[in-house]
Design a protein around this nucleic acid. Structure first.
Length: 106
DNA sequence: GTGGAGGCATTAA
DNA sequence: ATTAATGCCTCCA
């Protein structure tokens, strides 16, 4: 329990930060990690989002890598879903990349 | 209960 | 575009 509690706390913090991303905007994993108080835990964010429960209502699709690109393989199922969700929120895609204007968080 | 190795939805040069 | 480095997590012996 104790050894599994530390990640749980971080997870909660990450959820909170991700949930705070406004619609139509995106943030990078590193950014999220930093805002969550985990300066170098970008990978942790990715891991946490990958282990999200169903119907968590968390805007995980607003999280992309530092290059503004979706971290899933192009054409993949999850890739499409994320792209669709972002487009539905008004996020502008410049090809495979997200418009830099959506990175108003940095 | 402890130690060691591998893997990753990353980031930066 | 590709490669190298980093930090954290999970699993097995």
């Amino acid at each position: 329990m104790t050894s599994a509690m530390a990640p749980a706390e971080q997870r909660e913090r990450i959820w909170r930060v991700v949930h705070g991303i406004p619609s139509g905007k995106v943030a990078s994993y590193g950014q999220i990690a930093q805002l969550a108080g985990l300066p170098r835990a970008a990978r942790l964010v990715g891991r946490v989002l990958s282990q999200l429960p169903e119907g968590s209502k968390l805007p995980w699709h607003r999280v992309v890598n530092s290059q503004g690109r979706i971290s899933f393989p192009f054409g993949s199922e999850p890739y499409r879903e994320q792209r669709e969700r972002l487009l539905a929120e008004g996020v502008v895609f410049s090809g495979q990349r997200v418009a830099r204007a959506c990175f108003n968080w940095d």
